[in-house]
Computed example of a mutant assay.
Amino acid sequence: MPEFKDQLGQVFTFEKAPSRIVSLVPSQTEMLYDLGLEEQLVGITKFCVHPFHLKSTKKIVGGTKKVHVEKIRLLQPDIIICNKEENTPEIVASLRGIAPVWVTEIVTLEDSLEMISQLGMLFNRRTEARKWIDKINHAKQDFDRFVKDVPIRKAAYFIWKNPWMAVGSDNFINEMLSTNRFANIYSDKGRYPEVHIQKIRIQGDPEIVFLSSEPYPFNEQDAFEVGRCTHHAKVVFVDGEMFSWYGTRLVKAFAYFRQLQERIS
């Protein structure tokens, strides 16, 4: 019986490829669809918005931090796909009595490519996985050539208000900031630090401040509030999916990053 290992090192054995999948991570739901597994997907979260039609054709089993365990149980899944950051240890533990729970851990681009490869093997979609990995690598190489002469600029990336929370280190968004040649002023403050924007000048004085479209709905007043605490920083609203969604979304993300660089240059 073939063995498979997830990114936490857990070993799984399956007699055949799982054919009933519950996905509790939006970016991974999109990736599974792109690997040709739409028919096998039986349950998704309310945040799984790509592709849009899945919300009307698949069972919604809750969010990423709070799931309806009984709804998942009734779907009789062969496997449940989670992520170490997106889903809590309590959720993972509560689901292990229903089906094997595969957990991904994504911090770097390499982690994302490994995940695509692993799930391609698990679901007998090796060819499709290889095509997407090649597309992402090509897009990344093209973008690297585009930004190689762009100067490194200090930046802050906010994801929440009340309290203000920024992106720190050891997460995928910080990896994408680095890829864009942005030096994160909060990279030494933990993963998602609470910060006082009134101290932003002494904490790094960024040239650019990003306000993400998710999970908090920032508005123009928020941009004004944080902007006046800086030393003439440019405040930019950005598509949070492009910075935080891993998997096949990366092909679109690198095209978006190119447009963003042109916008702020």
Rank of each mutant, 00 (worst) to 15 (best):
K5W: 07
K5Y: 12
K5S: 13
K5P: 09
Q7F: 08
L8Q: 15
G9W: 07
G9K: 08
V11S: 13
T13S: 15
F14G: 03
F14L: 06
F14C: 03
F14K: 05
K16V: 11
K16C: 04
P18S: 09
S19I: 07
I21G: 07
I21R: 02
I21D: 08
S23F: 00
S23C: 11
S23K: 00
L24D: 03
L24Y: 00
V25R: 04
V25P: 05
S27N: 14
Q28Y: 10
E30C: 11
M31R: 02
L32N: 06
L32Q: 07
L32I: 12
D34H: 12
L35N: 09
G36L: 06
G36R: 00
L37R: 04
E38I: 00
E39T: 11
Q40C: 04
L41S: 06
V42G: 00
G43P: 04
G43I: 01
G43E: 08
G43K: 02
I44N: 03
I44F: 05
I44D: 06
T45V: 05
T45E: 04
K46H: 12
K46V: 13
K46N: 14
F47M: 11
V49R: 10
H50S: 13
H50P: 05
P51K: 00
L54N: 00
L54S: 02
L54H: 00
K55M: 14
K55A: 09
S56D: 15
K59R: 14
K59D: 08
I60K: 01
G62W: 05
T64G: 09
K65S: 01
H68G: 14
V69A: 12
E70H: 09
K71S: 13
I72P: 06
R73D: 10
R73T: 11
L74M: 13
L75D: 00
L75M: 07
L75F: 01
Q76R: 14
D78R: 01
D78E: 09
I79V: 15
I79Q: 06
I81P: 07
N83R: 08
K84E: 15
E86C: 03
N87A: 05
T88K: 09
T88Q: 04
T88W: 09
E90I: 04
E90S: 13
E90G: 07
A93G: 10
R96L: 09
G97Y: 04
I98Q: 03
A99F: 00
P100H: 04
V101F: 02
V101Y: 02
V103Y: 06
T104D: 14
T104F: 11
T104H: 13
I106K: 01
I106E: 05
T108R: 12
L109G: 12
E110Q: 14
E110W: 00
L113G: 04
L113K: 02
L113S: 05
L113Q: 01
E114N: 14
E114F: 13
M115V: 12
Q118L: 15
L119P: 06
L122P: 08
L122R: 05
L122K: 04
N124M: 09
N124W: 07
R126T: 13
T127Q: 15
T127W: 09
D134N: 14
K135Y: 10
I136A: 01
I136L: 08
H138P: 09
H138I: 11
